[in-house]
Design a protein around this nucleic acid. Structure first.
Lengths: 329, 329
DNA sequence: TTGAAAGCGCTAACAT
DNA sequence: ATGTTAGCGCTTTCAA
């Protein structure tokens, strides 16, 4: 569609060598100000843009980062994607997006396939075992979102504080026991959520029980709700908002009042947590900041030679809405 | 992080010329079967992957497509992204994602910045004027999603049928007039929605009025709802689901019963339309198919030399839920 | 069927 | 400060 203008065309038109043109673009200090201005002007007139492939071939760098997410349509990851995209754009980096379909094998394959073309990876909610993560980090710059592996850069939500906020909130409503409706067993953040909940419950002197695993989607709510009701739970905390909303739907269907009979709390604060019925009390994570922070961490490794793996913990905030209330009875 | 294995390494190890290795990979027919098998085996052992940049330099092709969306966090685009990603992966193409922030200037800038590195663009809900779109298509392979411009490939939802379904549905409930709560004036699909609604209303002998524009987000619902109520509307159709849900929130707040007093219908069927309160009657579009179709169209242009701009119209389906009902009074 | 060699566009020594 | 030149890894004529 477009006959490309090369550095040679510019050099010829400006009456200089190609190296001078190259320097005018990438090494402003090492070329005469006047020459530089003239070269840039000629380049502009000709509509010259440096060929990224040629640069990449030379430098081994593509100025491209890849972001892998388990499921693009899960609203939770929309924030991560947005933050990552923004940070990449700010750093003049190109962001490649891929969907792992909640599947470790697909994820591994994508890392292999994309690896040669990108300078680094942001792996969000990775399903890969630690060993494979470390192997990937051996070959590429890597940063994790909501997953921590010793030796790797990561950005995670502060689940310790978050789960404590949840327990405190429920305790303040008089609840003496909570049921955790767990998600996928391989989910690192799921494990952290449960661990935090259990610890906070113990500190507060209330009991915490784990049910599940359930699929962390709307449809998973039916089984989860039924189990919770059968156990006589008065307060349930779901693995994520989609599951929590599914639980509330099932309860409504069964004539159980939320929060009159049972309080429901979620994790994520997805779009929709605000307008589902009743509006969901849930732990908000700073997903955009997480995506942006991970991109920055990868860029630091790939371009600034930073080796020390940074671990950032982002604050969480309990959004108290109408799905939680005083203990029944 | 990784000492790269080049074609030369493979050639040496296999005792053949680099050109033979190259052919073994890209031109299976023009190399001895036995030689080829041996070369591939050696390559595998060495962990060789062709360098994409070098290929791109030679061929001028990056095997990369760019997808531009107005707002990544808008659940509507999640489906488009997913479909595009899937189609790209199936065609062994890399997908670059960028957010235009609902902004024509940003969109134009992204096309310029990404242009040299990608083989084509999928522009979804583009805010660019026709002239700029045509100019972009002059330089790159382009396909549009939910936007049509003469001469360009596009995938659009069947709003003619969709708006007719909406009107028929409301008429069957006895409604004699509908209010359309409009979105951004530059929105092509917004214009199509209104045009379809008006035509269908006329055919059905009911009146249609347009209000707005309103911001197509939850917060836009307050002003939209107030205007509709002031006008005594009994049936409103909102530009999209987010606005529709915002409208219902405002009505609930003002003690107006949906659908008892007012029926509310949206467009998109986003995640959440199903679990908002009341569940929203809305027109479902096949967003994933749209994203996938657009990628296929761009790929056909970029790699198969297809010039005839394909226009695909995807069916829409009215999801009747609880937000619409018999006309009041 | 295979090999030798010439670039693709750019950057980075190395000269001048 | 600028020009010359040698590749980066790969594909592709052109010969053999």
């Amino acid at each position: 569609m477009d006959r490309r203008v090369t550095i040679t065309d510019v050099a010829r038109a400006a009456g200089v060598a190609t190296s001078t043109v190259s320097r005018a673009f990438t090494n402003p200090g090492r070329v005469n100000q006047h020459t530089r201005a003239q070269v840039l002007e000629v380049a502009r007139q000709l509509g010259y843009t440096p060929n990224a492939a040629a640069r990449a071939l030379e430098s081994g760098r593509s100025n491209t980062l890849a972001l892998l997410v388990p499921d693009i349509t899960n609203p939770y990851f929309a924030g991560v994607i947005k933050g990552a995209e923004r940070a990449a754009a700010a750093a003049d980096l190109i962001l490649v997006l891929a969907d792992t379909q909640e599947n470790a094998a697909t994820e591994e394959q994508l890392v292999r396939r994309l690896g040669p073309s990108v300078d680094g990876f942001v792996l969000s909610a990775s399903r890969l075992p630690d060993a494979q993560l470390l192997e990937a980090a051996n070959r590429h710059a890597v940063a994790l979102v909501n997953r921590a592996t010793p030796g790797l850069a990561s950005v995670v939500a502060d689940f310790d504080s978050g789960t404590r906020q949840i327990i405190d909130h429920l305790v303040s409503f008089g609840h003496r026991s909570v049921v955790f409706l767990g998600g996928p067993p391989e989910s690192w953040s799921g494990a952290r959520r449960w661990a935090g909940l259990r610890a906070a419950a113990e500190d507060a002197g209330v009991t915490a029980t784990r049910f599940g695993p359930y699929a962390p989607v709307l449809a998973g709510g039916a089984a989860a709700a039924d189990a919770a009701l059968a156990a006589g739970a008065t307060a349930v905390v779901a693995h994520n908002d989609m599951l929590a909303i599914g639980v509330m739907q099932r309860m409504a269907h069964r004539g159980v009042d939320v929060p009159g009979d049972v309080s429901v709390v979620g994790f994520d604060d997805i779009v929709g947590a605000e307008f589902c019925w009743p509006p969901l009390t849930t732990l908000r994570e700073r997903t955009e900041a997480a995506g942006a922070g991970a991109v920055e961490a990868v860029a630091a490794q790939a371009y600034a030679g930073v080796v020390e793996p940074s671990v950032r913990v982002l604050p969480t905030q309990l959004m108290v809405r109408a799905s939680s209330g005083p203990r029944a009875g």
